[in-house]
């Protein structure tokens, strides 16, 4: 791994390499450069994850011509695909060094250390939403109970924006979550469920199920589960699996055919 990166840096394939450096037993994201090749000795594959591709996006915004190499798990690859589609990164300028990845519905066999068994307390299981639950399990609850459980989770929110700030595919210059006409400001918890719903809607066609948002959430709100539902609906309604390819997504080009009918009003059914 070190040799590959060293060669890339030396022969000009890339200008910088984003990986992890071990500092006092903590793997921290680090930008390796040709000027300091000796640092490559400390390059590690970290079980803790940071959105390296987000760092790449910021770098590119500041310096569009920079060629970036990075360690990439499957989730990194999916995020890169999304970032290519949305013109945030140029595939010509990105070089990935692939490493082991985490299990996800998109790739079930993986050996990454992520998804350590999460401990979910009994009270949370009783009142809230179990972070480890499957989507099918949630549909067993009635409407009212489901609402109560999600609202329990959302009420914990301290509006730290950790979910957004860690998200590799959140790149908007202006964020709707900070728009005072859309979400009331000045109070904790933030306006719920609108705050979380807006973010969920914006995850359609973007979320690549890396789970970083849920890892970052100080209040353990099951965000990954919520956005998995988003991906589920996107797959059903738009026939699109976010992040699986870098070709165009139904969210940034116009669809030319659709077979769906709007859901009828059950009361009268007068609708066409």
């Amino acid at each position: 791994m070190q040799d590959t990166v060293k060669a890339w840096l030396e022969n000009g394939t890339i200008d910088v390499f984003l990986g992890y450096k071990k500092v006092d037993n903590h793997p921290l994201p680090h930008c390796f450069t040709k000027a300091r090749l000796e640092e490559l000795e400390d390059l590690v594959v970290s079980p803790d994850r940071y959105p390296l591709e987000k760092i790449a996006t910021h770098m590119t915004t500041a310096k569009p011509e920079v060629k970036i190499g990075m360690l990439a798990r499957d989730c990194t690859q999916r995020a890169l695909n999304v970032l290519y589609i949305w013109n945030q990164l140029d595939p010509e300028k990105i070089q990935t060094l692939n490493v082991n990845c985490c299990p996800s519905p998109l790739k079930e066999k993986a050996d990454c250390s992520y998804l350590r068994p999460a401990t979910v307390g009994d009270y949370k299981k009783e009142k809230g939403v179990n972070n480890a639950a499957l989507l099918e399990q949630l549909s067993e609850y009635g409407q009212e109970e489901r609402l109560g459980r999600w609202m329990y989770e959302f009420q914990k929110c301290i509006k730290c924006y950790g979910c957004r700030n860690i998200c590799p595919v959140c790149f908007c210059k202006e964020c709707s979550l900070e728009h005072e006409d859309l979400i009331k400001t000045g109070a904790l918890p933030p306006e719920i469920p609108v705050f979380h719903l807006i973010r969920a809607v914006h995850m359609a066609g973007r979320c690549i199920d890396c789970g970083l948002c849920e890892e970052a959430c100080p209040m353990d709100i099951p965000l990954r589960l919520l956005y998995r539902k988003v991906n589920d609906i996107v797959a059903q309604v738009f026939d699109y699996k976010t992040g699986t390819s870098a070709s165009q997504s139904p969210f940034n080009i116009l669809g030319d055919s659709v077979t769906l009918e709007p859901k009828p009003i059950q009361l009268t059914g007068t609708d066409s």
């Binding site: 116009l254 669809g255 859901k263």
Partner: peptide, 23 residues
């Protein structure tokens, strides 16, 4: 042009999401 195609998909998406949350 394709506005209603987009709309129906997006509203369906929203209906599903709100149902998931219990609304």
């Amino acid at each position: 042009l394709y506005g209603n195609y987009m709309t129906i998909k997006r509203i369906t998406f929203l209906q599903e999401l709100l149902t998931f949350l219990g609304l």
